[in-house]
Computed example of a mutant assay.
Amino acid sequence: MRFASDNTSGAAPEIMAAIVKANEGYEHSYGADAAMARVTEQIREIFEAPQAVVHLVATGTAANALAIATHCPPWGAVFCHRHAHIAEDECNAPEFYSGAKLVLVPGDHGKITPDGLSTALATTGESGVHGVQRGMLSLTNVTEAGTVYTPAEIASLTALAKAKGLPCHLDGARFANALVATGATPAQMTWQVGIDVLSFGGTKNGCLGVEGVVLFNPEKAWELELRRKRGGHLFSKHRFLSAQMQAYLSDGLWLRLAAQANAMGQRLGQGLRDRQAQVPEAPANMLFPDWAVGHHDRLEAAGAAYYRFPAPEGRERARLVASWSTTEADVDRFLTAF
């Protein structure tokens, strides 16, 4: 009954097998391995983007920080949701790597709204040389509230940013889960709706530790490569990153793993609703239910692991995250203990 995070799950067997295989013999270092060339081909095929470039790193924080630094000058503002991962969970790494300022945009259920973004854009960069300038937009999908942007919602936000000449970033730590939840294609969720650079998640969805920075504008590729090296995120034995990503993208594994996580999230959410818990919109694998006082102690005594969240008086709230390895038995045990 481990629902604290999809980070707490292990790596999928296919990923581990790929790493073991990559350990055989010798291979070129620093990203010149044959598997990395195949990863680039796979990304271009999957995203229907023949000019796309991908660079691999080991963590989502590195992917986000390098993507932002490559697209936003140090005098620029990065417009993001006030509860975005880059704002609350990355120890100022995006600011450190870019020198930019995060401008936090409000919005219910983890989503920036067009009105909220319009206000932020209109009130930033109006004091000339004395103030921060408009820099870029960063969205998160799946959001930190467990909700999901549709391609149409992303397009409405990127259009506002593009009208100001701003590039747009998508933090896709749970990108596969968002695709499964919406039925969108990778292209429909990214470059076709105005996304210039994607942090393409793998670690939360069954990889041991690999994330991709996918650039749909190849003119930025060399700068990102330099920033990755300068920031200490270029692996010498890069083949172990490449092997994970190649296996992840092969035969639809990445989408199957996400589908399992989402299905278990939906099973858990429905089971809690059936037991009179309040479960806000949560179409992917992350839930924020609240329920009557007393369930926390009972669940934890039964061995359930998850995060308690602040709740109104007389209620309890939790964050529950299903992973690729969550089973129906795990969900049903939690519901029985509830």
Rank of each mutant, 00 (worst) to 15 (best):
280 P>Y: 10
228 R>Q: 14
51 Q>R: 01
251 D>N: 11
154 I>L: 07
34 A>L: 05
111 K>Q: 09
188 Q>K: 08
201 G>L: 05
260 Q>F: 00
238 H>S: 15
276 Q>N: 14
54 V>K: 00
125 G>I: 07
207 C>D: 13
274 D>S: 14
302 A>H: 06
311 A>Q: 09
34 A>E: 15
143 T>P: 12
169 H>F: 14
336 T>N: 07
331 V>T: 03
99 G>P: 05
226 L>P: 00
153 E>A: 04
52 A>D: 01
285 N>H: 15
146 G>Q: 06
180 V>K: 11
109 H>Y: 10
337 A>P: 05
260 Q>S: 11
36 M>F: 14
327 T>P: 05
229 K>E: 08
105 V>C: 04
190 T>C: 13
198 L>E: 14
41 E>D: 15
147 T>S: 13
82 R>W: 09
336 T>I: 01
307 Y>E: 15
55 H>T: 15
267 R>L: 14
30 Y>C: 01
192 Q>G: 04
281 E>N: 10
328 E>R: 12
6 D>N: 15
148 V>Q: 04
3 F>L: 15
149 Y>W: 02
265 G>I: 12
196 D>M: 12
77 A>Q: 02
188 Q>M: 08
121 L>Q: 05
179 L>M: 08
189 M>W: 01
233 H>F: 12
158 T>I: 05
278 Q>R: 11
49 A>F: 00
243 A>T: 10
81 H>N: 10
239 R>A: 00
248 Y>E: 13
202 G>Q: 09
218 P>M: 02
62 A>C: 03
83 H>W: 02
207 C>I: 09
34 A>H: 04
305 A>S: 02
75 W>Y: 13
240 F>T: 13
127 S>M: 13
194 G>I: 06
215 L>P: 00
204 K>N: 09
111 K>C: 08
214 V>L: 00
298 R>D: 14
248 Y>L: 05
319 R>T: 07
278 Q>T: 15
182 T>Q: 07
232 G>I: 01
190 T>I: 03
130 H>E: 09
214 V>W: 02
291 W>Y: 06
75 W>P: 00
109 H>W: 04
114 P>I: 07
156 S>T: 08
152 A>C: 09
236 S>Y: 03
188 Q>E: 15
224 L>Q: 06
18 A>D: 06
244 Q>S: 04
91 C>D: 12
145 A>H: 07
235 F>L: 13
136 M>Q: 06
225 E>H: 12
116 G>D: 12
146 G>R: 03
294 G>N: 11
297 D>L: 10
142 V>A: 12
248 Y>T: 10
43 I>E: 10
233 H>L: 09
87 A>M: 03
286 M>S: 15
327 T>L: 11
313 E>P: 11
162 K>H: 10
324 W>S: 06
84 A>T: 05
258 A>T: 11
316 E>D: 08
84 A>I: 10
288 F>Y: 11
158 T>L: 07
136 M>H: 00
218 P>R: 00
185 T>C: 06
50 P>G: 00
279 V>W: 04
133 Q>E: 01
236 S>V: 07
70 T>G: 08
265 G>T: 08
